[in-house]
Design a binder for these strands. Structure first.
Lengths: 230, 230
DNA sequence: ACATTCCATTGATCTATCTCAATAATGTGA
DNA sequence: TCACATTATTGAGATAGATCAATGGAATGT
């Protein structure tokens, strides 16, 4: 199971560089107080859709997926890597999670009491503004995703996911995907068989190089074209 | 074209009852200062996706649709009726609209300078919190919509839209839809021909009564069932 | 090393949904 | 009131994508 562990102070943590940059040392110390660190093994659930949401999660190591459990299958909303935090919309509505989160790789996360967070939002306008910016960016990302999922055909959707993985998650070009083909399918709203087939097609056309879990985008222009065409 | 008009004070406006309830009289007066009222005829555009977003919009009369212009077709994100306001995610990101808005019925809206809004967010924590709640609820709504669009078949999607129209927009059971069949299709992510066919099927099965633009849900339980089944 | 389990791959079939095309109905302006 | 334009409806054909079923590979535990 997960083991708890004492960790260093927030003040030295790389998390500080993201939204927390607008916090004063004193406020950061408050975050530090109501905080604990947890390790997760691949596949382990951080939290389940529908359960209460008493804290927000800051990922310090590893990779996690956020997914909605729908009718029979899942939709992966996003992957989360360090340093990023997970703050579901339920926190300000009914204190419930509206999606589940699970570790993909070996993952470490800090859990912080949500009330401290809310208090800081009220008392620090810079922090509040930063947070609203975050929510806004997320909403924009979701718009792009919806359009991709509802208006593009499978090759276009896979192309979008591949760009997402390269640019936002792994950040380099031959990249090794730690997510499964099923996850790839859940990211692009199709069956896993279809995701495999499309991947193979792109490989056969020389647009991708696929070796096991390593993917390289060979012909960026053409893949971009496929993303546009739908 | 649209005619500008002087209108009463925000203090007497029914808009006050929504998010603005947390504003002090003085703050409400600030909103009132940087505000003007515009009328739109059916079909007229309130703002276009991609254009700058210098104010937020408060709907005081009529009905508007918010839609993303995608690849060849539109996706309607939501319908907006009084008293509700439209605040796109671009405002806190790059000051661009990420969706378009158009009047469905004869519509009146108040446009308020977004900088006043942002200033009030910073100075009034209750208002900020209220606003974050709004964004959160919207995100949750979007989640439901994505799942409906990507994981349900056409009858389920139409069922969801019909419930949405009855509960959130028209608020009564035999309701007259002022939106077109194309809009219905854009709400449920299908072609207009398909939306018409599904509507007819539901009518033939006795679940709906459809006369022109008037729709009545006759068998709520069965329609709920269809929504669930996908 | 071997068995077991899970994940990836491939092929064949089936079906939900789109597209195209034709017709009907409704609204609109002169 | 009539012509024109827009929207709604219906049918037939084409297809993207799902599902089912079988097989191959890799990882894991004993």
């Amino acid at each position: 199971m997960n083991k708890m562990q004492e960790s260093e102070n927030c003040k030295n943590c790389s998390c500080k560089t993201s939204i927390f940059s607008s916090l004063t040392p004193d406020e950061l110390e408050q975050i530090n107080q109501g905080r604990y660190t947890v390790n997760y093994k691949p596949g382990e659930i951080l939290f389940k859709q529908g359960t209460p949401s008493p804290h927000f999660v800051c990922l310090t190591k590893g990779l996690a997926k956020l997914y909605i459990e729908g009718y029979g299958k899942n939709l992966i909303l996003a992957l989360v890597k360090p340093v990023d935090y997970i703050f579901g919309p339920g926190t300000y509505v009914d204190n419930r999670h509206y999606y589940s989160a699970a570790a993909v790789d070996e993952t470490t996360a800090c859990l912080v009491d949500v009330n401290i967070f809310k208090k800081l939002i009220r008392q620090n306008p810079d922090f509040a503004e930063e947070f609203i910016q975050r929510l806004s960016r997320q909403a924009i990302f979701n718009f792009d995703q919806v359009i991709s999922l509802t208006q593009k055909q499978m090759p276009g959707r896979i192309a979008d996911v591949l760009f997402y993985l390269r640019e936002k998650i792994y950040g380099k070009n031959p990249f090794e995907i730690s997510i499964s083909r099923q996850d790839l399918a859940d990211l692009s709203g199709m069956s896993k068989e279809s995701s495999i087939r499309i991947l193979k097609e792109l490989k056969d056309e020389g647009i991708l190089k696929v070796t096991g879990n390593t993917v390289e985008i060979l012909n960026e222009k053409q893949l971009r074209q496929i993303s546009q065409t739908g």
